[in-house]
Write a protein that binds this DNA or RNA. Structure first.
Lengths: 247, 247
DNA sequence: TTTATAAAATTGTGATATCATTTTCTGAAT
DNA sequence: ATTCAGAAAATGATATCACAATTTTATAAA
């Protein structure tokens, strides 16, 4: 069984479920030349980021292993990595979950995201080139298309690519792994928010970011990044959490 | 053999070394009720932070396992966690090392440390209490003693406690794990610097931090933290790296 | 229906076995 | 001394096994 046996399931057809059902971990292309452990890590990470694993659902190591058709060993390593990135919470009752968001934690994570990404963007600015700006502009154009198609998965991924492209023009940059870790902690909840919101990106802050990059204006860049992150889901997230935590 | 067989060792007494020699991983008190994997993680982390594993020394999973008298399984999990925190670099030739510092990376890490710690300190300020300030003052006093005794290990650890105490007064804080991760990346090199420097902490910036906390002055706190981090090892580190990289 | 208790199943953990690679060692030829 | 091939040893990765601890289910009593 791939799922937690704690979860009650009295299905009309009876019998045990085999390998698809409540928990559906989206497959990802298997990168050749990599280890199983790495594959599991990437796949679970992707599933968490895209909200395919509902926060609060309890999981087990062996359950995941069975679900993926693997032995517990590589799953354990992948899970432990995700756990040290706070993407998975290992509880003391032999269960683990994608942590539920709280209002306090949300505010902290968003503020931290702003602080680190602004800092990283500023340090990237001296390395910015017209070629990269062009590349980022293309990304932004593609995102406009994805918004109208309401393809949330690709939108999330491409939005990350956009930011990552900016930050990594600084070749010595050391903050990208940290930023990715924060994205991962915010991801599951952002997805919950996005599915409840109709208008995304009322004001396109990416255009502001691109403008600031073009003029090499650090102050404008700081504002643009701050606004992009804040406008994105901050307000909606606050609302959702305010309602949720009141109940 | 606990060490990399790549390392040549023609010892006069010949024969294989058993379990003490070049690589000496300081023991730590075994916390009861915890797993072997966690113990290995803490012990390796401590060893890296305190510079007991010389950066660049090549290690193997099995070597470490033998050294610690354990099977490879828990060692692998601990090593992978450290690897995802960039405390250990897993190379493609089946070896791993504590990464050597470069000037560029050093500058990035220190700047990042300043940015995150300033941000975290500011958000902690509203939660600051006289009791905590008193506790931090005592820590600072103890550090003065350790400086005169030149006890670098305890000094490093207590300095971290000092900062950690400040940042964690904010109960919802989410940045502590990130700060710890940066400390860990800086740790081995800081130790190399400290052993080559005679005067530590010419100006005691901790006193400035405590003053800013007492007056609840965010601007002064920002300056004090920035100066504390910058004065600590930044200048010496730059010098050491400038010389090293020229060669 | 609820509660207490015993039995059964499941779990996390860590050691071990196995396998394909990779590295290191050996020794001859240059 | 160097170089280079082949043999031998060591390594990382994963599956499997064993075991204690915990949870879940089954059973019986109130």
């Amino acid at each position: 069984m791939y799922f937690d046996s704690m979860t009650p399931f009295n299905k009309p057809w009876g019998g045990l479920m085999t390998s698809n059902g409540e928990l559906n971990i989206p497959d990802i292309p298997e990168i050749s030349g990599t280890t199983t452990q790495e594959y599991v890590y990437e796949r679970l990470r992707n599933a968490i980021m895209l909200g395919a694993i509902e926060p609060g659902t309890s999981l087990t190591m062996r359950g995941l292993a069975d679900c993926l058709g693997l032995s517990p060993t590589p799953v354990r390593e992948a899970v432990r990595r995700l756990s040290s990135e706070h993407a998975i919470q290992i509880k003391d009752n032999r269960r683990m979950t994608v942590p539920l968001m709280t209002l306090d934690r949300f505010e902290e994570l968003v503020a931290l995201r702003v602080a680190i990404e602004v800092h990283t963007a500023k340090r990237a600015l001296p390395y910015m080139s017209d070629v990269i700006i062009e590349k980022m502009t293309e990304m932004d154009d593609r995102m406009d298309g994805l918004i109208s198609e309401k393809d949330l998965d690709q939108l999330t991924l491409l939005n990350q690519d956009f930011h990552r492209t900016l930050y990594t023009v600084n070749p010595a940059q050391a903050s990208m792994p940290i930023i990715e870790s924060i994205w991962l902690q915010l991801g599951p909840f952002q997805r919950q928010v996005l599915t409840r919101v109709t208008e995304y990106y009322e004001i396109d802050r990416h255009k502001e970011i691109l403008a600031a990059l073009t003029t090499r204006d650090a102050i404008a860049l700081e504002d643009a990044i701050t606004n992009d992150i804040s406008d994105g889901v901050l307000r909606s997230g606050r609302n959702l959490l305010a309602v949720t935590e009141a109940a």
